[in-house]
Amino acid sequence: MEILIIIISAIFVNNIVLTQFLGICPFLGVSTKVDTAMGMAAAVCFVMAISTLVTYLLQYYILVPLGIEFMQTLTFILVIAALVQMIEIILKKISPALYKALGIFLPLITTNCCVLGVAIMVVSKEFAFGGEAHMLNLGESVLYSVAMAMGFGVALILFAGIREQLELSNVPKAFKGVPIALVTAGILALAFMGFSGLV
């Protein structure tokens, strides 16, 4: 039951893009086609799950015992950057097909703030999923990060679908490009507000 609540709350109620404002750059940047949006979403999901796993272990087995939690930002970003690079190399070797599909999106993910954001979020905040508020354990953290990435994917793919239609419509000159995309995102965020209070 709790698993279901975690997934629903991460995808709809606390959607990472539309309610928490993380990962806006790729949201605006690579969402002009549904295909590329799917590729990006898959790559983010993959990297986010692995990096949350690693940073969680790093936080509780190295930073906390040594009492150097203030090094969190520095170590997390380094680990994420190294991980992305490593995943790229490993994928190239063992699964060229997947590498081809995700290839161009992987380097972009290092500077995608949702990966670092979720990694910091799960180790610094208490969550209450229906029950008492508590710090997440390892399994919940990874599940939460995957669900968050799925929320990113849902928002990205929905937005890409709308933008494909938007291409064909007649937009005032001053609104061309980013402003109309922002207005669209605002309406989408308005729709997602309807989910608040669900969990």
Binding site: K173, V183, M193
Partner: peptide, 26 residues
């Protein structure tokens, strides 16, 4: 709604349009 998420998108969009208009950056 303007303090919540949707307002952020709307306000930024309209300010961006006004900025473009004022600086002739169309």
């Amino acid at each position: 709604a303007f303090v919540l998420a949707p307002g952020a998108f709307f306000v930024l969009a309209y300010l961006m349009v006004i900025f473009r208009k004022l600086t002739g950056n169309l």
